[in-house]
Design a protein around this nucleic acid. Sequence first.
DNA 1: AAAGCCACCAACCGCCAGGGG
DNA 2: GCCCCTGGCGGTTGGTGGCTT
Length: 253
Amino acid sequence: MVRAPCCEKMGLKKGPWTPEEDQILISHIERYGHSNWRALPKQAGLLRCGKSCRLRWINYLRPDIKRGNFTREEEETILKLHEMLGNRWSAIAAKLPGRTDNEIKNVWHTHLKKRLLTKDTNQNSNIKIKAKSMKRNRDIDSRPISPAQSPSDFSSSVTETSSGENTDSYGTSFVKEESFTSEEFPIIDESFWSEDVSMDNGNELNYTVPADASFDAFISEPAGMLCSSNGDDMDFWLRVFIEAGEMNDLPQI
DNA sequence: AAAGCCACCAACCGCCAGGGG
DNA sequence: GCCCCTGGCGGTTGGTGGCTT
């Protein structure tokens, strides 16, 4: 049996918000702000718990909320960011002005996940990508290691070309080879990472590289997925699957 | 026309981290 | 260091409306 919700316990209202409640909440926040969510409903005269008020405001009533369907660009951004960050909806939402984590989560579960699954199936689901040969349209030297570039500007989503080759948004080309799983990735010296955010994301391993790490430093390490970040801002990331011993295929820095 | 199914999405729940006493 | 409170997050649920049979 589930624990009785706090709202019910206190005789507070649950369920969909009425326009009247919305108006009360908006007026109150416009006038007094929302320094204390717990106290807010009482002050505003709402029979809701603070949590419910906060959620309603954050996800629906905030003036900067962007309504309407997600654009193709927004969906692509979500896919890229999800690939990088996993289910960190708030972090993804931070990169999409006017969109909420809840909204993004819903879009992911209702549209994007299915799209991804379909794509995976079509592409022979078990295929993993390995950076066998890398060609870049841009000189990798010109890429900032320091987080000064916007993520959308520097994200790299893998798409498949008609020739079966995969390219990212920079034209980095990947050759699909045999399948291999996370267990087969070489072990990384954990002392290298300033912040251990490693996680098992399906068959992939994700790591965060210190923002000030030199590119030399991290390509010298065999890795699954490599990212660089600076705090919350994931400004640069490089998606490479590298096998030990194949570093020669990487461009010289 | 009615029933069943499904997709969507707003809202809720439980957990966790951070801050203050 | 401990406890409590609060905000924030991600997972899940349930109501609603549209579609199919």
